[in-house]
Design a protein around this nucleic acid. Sequence first.
DNA 1: GAAGATTGAGTATTCAATCTTG
DNA 2: CAAGATTGAATACTCAATCTTC
Lengths: 181, 181
Amino acid sequence: VTDPDLPWPEIDVPADHARALSAWLHAQHGVQVVQASISARMEAEAGCGLAEHQALFRLAHAPQHRMSMLRLADALAASPSGATRLVERLVRRGWVVREQPPENRRQTDAVLTEDGYQALLRRTRPAYHRALTESFSALLTPRELADLHRIGRKLLAGHDAYDEHRYAAWEHRPPAADDPA
Amino acid sequence: VTDPDLPWPEIDVPADHARALSAWLHAQHGVQVVQASISARMEAEAGCGLAEHQALFRLAHAPQHRMSMLRLADALAASPSGATRLVERLVRRGWVVREQPPENRRQTDAVLTEDGYQALLRRTRPAYHRALTESFSALLTPRELADLHRIGRKLLAGHDAYDEHRYAAWEHRPPAADDPA
DNA sequence: GAAGATTGAGTATTCAATCTTG
DNA sequence: CAAGATTGAATACTCAATCTTC
C-alpha cells in the first residue's frame, strides 16, 4: 500500500475491453432512461403502462387481431407467466378477451376487443407516438436511427432471438427520399 | 367492414414514424436480450446478479472505494430505495460496509471491503468480462461499438442524465491504432 | 408423455411516508 | 424546513410446479 487513499491497487481496465464496456454501459443506460421516460409519459397521459400498449399494438397488427399466449409472450420478450398476468390486466380493462380455439383447446388466444382497438387508437398510440418522438427520435439523426435498427438486429440475431415474423409489414418500408443512410 | 378477417380497419403506421419505431424496438429488445444473457451467466458463474457487480465495480473505481447512497443510486440508474436494498444484500455478503462520515451524519457511505474487492477481482469481474465479450462485443464491429457509445451518450444528454463524473478514467482512453472509427 | 397455459412462492423495484440530522 | 436515507405497501416479474388437453 503506497497511498492511504488507495488501500488496494487500482483496478486496471485493458483498453480493448474499455471500449466494449463503455459502449455497453452507455447503450444500456441510454435505453433504460428513454424507456423510463416513455413509460412515465404513457402512465400519465394514457393511464397505461408500456407493456400494455405493446400488447395492444401487437394484437392490432396480428391476423384477426388475435395471438396465442405463447406467441404474445415471445413478441413482448416476456415469460409465459408474464404474458398470462399482462393479459389478465388487459381483460380486466375490457381491452382483450380470452378465447380457446375449438380445434385445439390447449391453446388460449388473446383477442383484441372493440374497446381495446379504440383505446389503442385514441389513447395509447397517440401518447406513445408523442413520447417516442420527444424522448427518442428527436434526439437522433436518421442515420443514427438506422444504425440502431441494424445493431439491434445483429444483437438479436446473435442470440437467436430475431424472429422475422415478430416485426411485421409496417416496418419494411422503402427508405424515405431524405434518408441519408 | 369489408373483410370478415379484419373486423376493424388496419392500423396505418406512417413511414417516418415506422423508422423511429423499428429503431427503438430493435434497440430496446436487443439491449434487453444481451442484458438477460449477461445476467444469467453472472448468476451461474459468479453467483451474483448484474446489479451487484455494477455496484462493486463503481465502488472500486470511486475515490477511497466509497460512495454516498445517493451517488451510488444515480450511478446505477436506480431509485434511492433500490440502492438501499442493493447495498443491504452486499452488506449481508460482507462485500460492503456502511459508514457515516462524522462531518455529516445524515449521509451514509457504502464502502468496499477487502472481501468485496477480492470478489470483484476474482469472481464477478472475470465472469462479467467473459459474458460481455461473448454476448455483446463479439457480435459487433469496433465501428458499431463506437456508434453505440456516441448514441447512448446523446440519449442520456437529451434527458439530462449524462453525468461526466459517472464515467471515469478507464473509459477515456485514446482510441486504439486498429480502431477504424 | 408433451404442448400450452396458469398458479404459487420468491425476489426485485418503485412511490409515498417516515425518520434523522443539519 | 430541507437533505439524505430507510421502510412499508403495492406492483411486476421469474422459476418451478400444476393442471388440462392432445
